[in-house]
Amino acid sequence: MAEVPATPTTTARRHRGITVGPTTGRYLSAFKTPRGLIGLSLLGTLVLAALLAPVIFPGGYDDQGSDALTGPSAAHPFGRDEFGRDILVRSIYGLRINFSLIFLAVPLSMVLGLVLGLAAALSARLGAGVQRIFDIIIGFPGVLLGICLVTVFGPGRLALFLTILISGIPVAGRLARAAWLSQQNREYVLAARVLGISRWHILARHIVPNAMDAIVLNASIWMVTGVYIEAGMSIVGLGMQPPTPSLGVLLNNGLRFVDQSPTYVIGPALLLLLLTIAFSLIADALNRAVNS
């Protein structure tokens, strides 16, 4: 009998001598495309700059100089703020705040959404109740939800973290629920039930893998949303509080001095734009890879 040709969906792939599963192989293939390479390179550069900020700028983000609100120069490409602090240095340190929020809140949000979305597999009534909770959360736009959380916890990192976390749960949860509803009556799932395989095993073996592509794509998109939630809340004074820098805090402060020093706003806005482009390119590359 002739052998069935191996396909990416049924066999492992090899990347640079390392054997990986078919799902991981699809994700890795996204970063071989121009969009994926550019997005990953741009994001890697920003992450590296944020991580090495204490080494590159040992004086810290609060180092003050004698000149205030000066324009860009070779030593200070974004100029200085109202206290004579280097805006580029504060922007790079601000990236650390943004990355610490989105790289923790977004994955945790996707995991919680996945778990809650699959609650319908355990109990139809429990699944319906969880969906009503999702509907309530979706009814609150990100900034409005943030305002509610700020009234409880006060402005700062915790309120920002919870806003990004809670806002992303319903989207991931609905994707997981859709995967369960679309797969629960498939023949292989019904056969597994007849054979007495536990529902937990069916979820782990069949349902979760079918939901992962959508969850991963949503996570890459939600990174952009998380960046804008931080910026939006901080601009209106509900996010990080001065003197701690974040891109939103810098934009909030810079708007008051935009006539005197336009680069006070342009510098942080440029980093915000680059961050958005990086995540958008990665999301697009992943989307093409999993749907090709």
Rank of each mutant, 00 (worst) to 15 (best):
G154K: 06
S220Q: 07
F134A: 09
R125T: 01
A120Q: 14
P209N: 02
M110A: 07
W200Q: 12
L181A: 14
A120I: 04
I207P: 02
G196V: 02
F161S: 11
V216E: 12
S182G: 13
A214D: 14
C148G: 11
L160D: 08
R174K: 12
D213I: 01
R199W: 05
F134V: 04
A192D: 12
I166H: 07
H201R: 13
A179W: 05
A219N: 10
G142M: 03
G173T: 04
I164P: 04
A159P: 09
L195A: 15
S198K: 07
L116Q: 09
V224S: 15
F134L: 02
L118Y: 08
R174Y: 03
S182R: 14
A128G: 11
A119T: 09
G173W: 05
P107H: 08
P107A: 06
F161D: 13
A191W: 07
E187T: 07
N218E: 15
I133R: 09
N210F: 00
L190Q: 11
L126H: 02
L126C: 05
T151H: 05
P141R: 11
L144T: 11
C148H: 04
V111C: 06
N218P: 09
G168H: 10
G127I: 00
T225R: 14
F140H: 09
S220K: 02
V194L: 14
R132W: 01
S167A: 12
A204G: 07
G173C: 13
F161C: 12
P170K: 03
W200E: 10
R132M: 06
V130H: 05
V130S: 02
V224Q: 14
A179P: 03
G146E: 07
V111I: 15
R157V: 11
A214Q: 11
I136E: 05
L190T: 01
S220D: 06
V171R: 13
A159T: 10
R199Q: 08
R193E: 12
L149K: 05
P209I: 00
T225V: 09
I133M: 15
V115T: 13
I137E: 12
A191Q: 03
G142S: 15
P155H: 04
G129L: 02
A204S: 06
R174S: 02
R177S: 10
Y188V: 01
I207H: 05
S167K: 13
H206Y: 11
Q184L: 01
L217N: 15
A191T: 00
P107D: 12
V130F: 00
I221L: 14
R186S: 12
V208D: 12
V224D: 11
I221V: 11
A172F: 02
T225H: 13
G154Y: 01
L181D: 14
R125P: 00
P209A: 00
L118W: 07
L217T: 10
R174T: 03
I169F: 05
P141E: 11
V216T: 08
A124S: 14
L108K: 10
N218T: 15
C148Y: 06
L181T: 12
T151G: 07
L175Y: 04
R193H: 15
